[in-house]
Design a protein around this nucleic acid. Structure first.
Length: 274
DNA sequence: ACAGGATCCTGGGGGC
DNA sequence: TGCCCCCAGGATCCTG
């Protein structure tokens, strides 16, 4: 579910209630997430103070004193919230971390595609991102890097946008919305783009993500922010999930195809194959 | 190198 | 009400 705007919203909303607090109690559920949780990690976390909360691509990084990093991925249905301890614990809640002021950090994930992992040190954290080949953040992307990345590949633009090694943070919603904004067909082959079209796409990604963060992300089914409230960018979709509805620019019905293994939405008239 | 499919999971919605 | 099928903000592995 969550792509960069949703993850960024969670990070912004859990940062204030977490930074400076100590983890007082860590309770892990029995069901496994995508990466196995080591029971020993609970002991390490207990009593430790949070020093920072940041984001890298779709990953949440919670920095803890003594050089530990709790890294969280929300998968498709992950929810990461700070709530009052007396709030009822929803089904599919896999982690409850009590804070020293009585609040609770909770991780809920219906499909369990997400993960929580503890890294012992910055080097280990960096190595994990590096071994995955995680690409640069989409904001302030180097123009030449982006042009070259496209010029080098015979893959479709949709496939490139979804590839976290090329650019980190874009997922299915924002790939489709970015391609619409840039007026580029999702099936266009990277190496066929003109430099101008490449630049247009780079700026479209930034524009769409920035706007989506302002709207606190998209809440379609499961997503909620760190404070538990829904986002509203789902009300701004131009093409994602708009199959058959009129294109906001030219009124042509929005098409839906399967591309790079994912549902792909676009305007067959505005987004030319060129 | 790349496309496509399967996999990990659970739940919602539509059709019958 | 039940059943079956398809769908879902992701990542990764395997085959051809």
């Amino acid at each position: 579910m969550p792509e960069l705007p949703e993850v960024e919203t969670v990070v912004r909303e859990i940062r204030a209630p977490l930074v400076g607090r100590r983890f007082a109690r860590v309770r892990a559920g029995k069901l496994a997430l995508r990466k196995p949780w080591q029971p020993a990690w609970a002991k390490i976390l207990t009593g430790s103070r949070v020093t920072a909360v940041t984001r890298r691509g779709k990953w949440i990084v919670i920095e803890i004193e003594r050089n530990r990093y709790l890294v969280v991925h929300l998968g498709m249905t992950g929810q990461f919230t700070v709530t009052h301890a007396d709030a009822p614990i929803a089904a599919h809640t896999h982690f409850v971390i009590g804070l020293d002021n009585g609040a609770e950090l909770r991780y809920r994930d219906v499909r369990r595609f997400g993960s929580l992992t503890l890294y012992a040190g910055r080097a280990e954290l960096d190595a994990s991102f590096e071994s995955a080949g995680l690409g640069p953040e989409p904001f302030g992307l180097d123009r030449k890097y982006w042009r070259d990345s496209l010029a080098r590949t015979a893959r479709s633009l949709k496939a490139v946008l979804l590839d976290q090694r090329v650019v980190a943070g874009v997922g299915n919603i924002y790939a489709d919305e970015s391609l619409f904004r840039a007026k580029l067909h999702p099936a266009l082959i990277g190496k066929t783009l003109t430099p101008a079209a490449s630049d247009r796409l780079r700026k479209a990604i930034e524009g769409v993500l920035t706007f989506a963060i302002e709207r606190r992300g998209s809440s379609i089914r499961d997503y909620i922010g760190g404070s538990g409230e829904r986002g509203s960018f789902q009300n701004e979709f131009k093409v994602y999930g708009q199959t058959g509805k009129p294109c906001p620019r030219c009124k042509t019905p929005i098409s839906r195809i399967r591309l790079a293994g994912r549902s792909t939405h676009f305007c067959p008239k505005c987004q030319r194959v060129e």
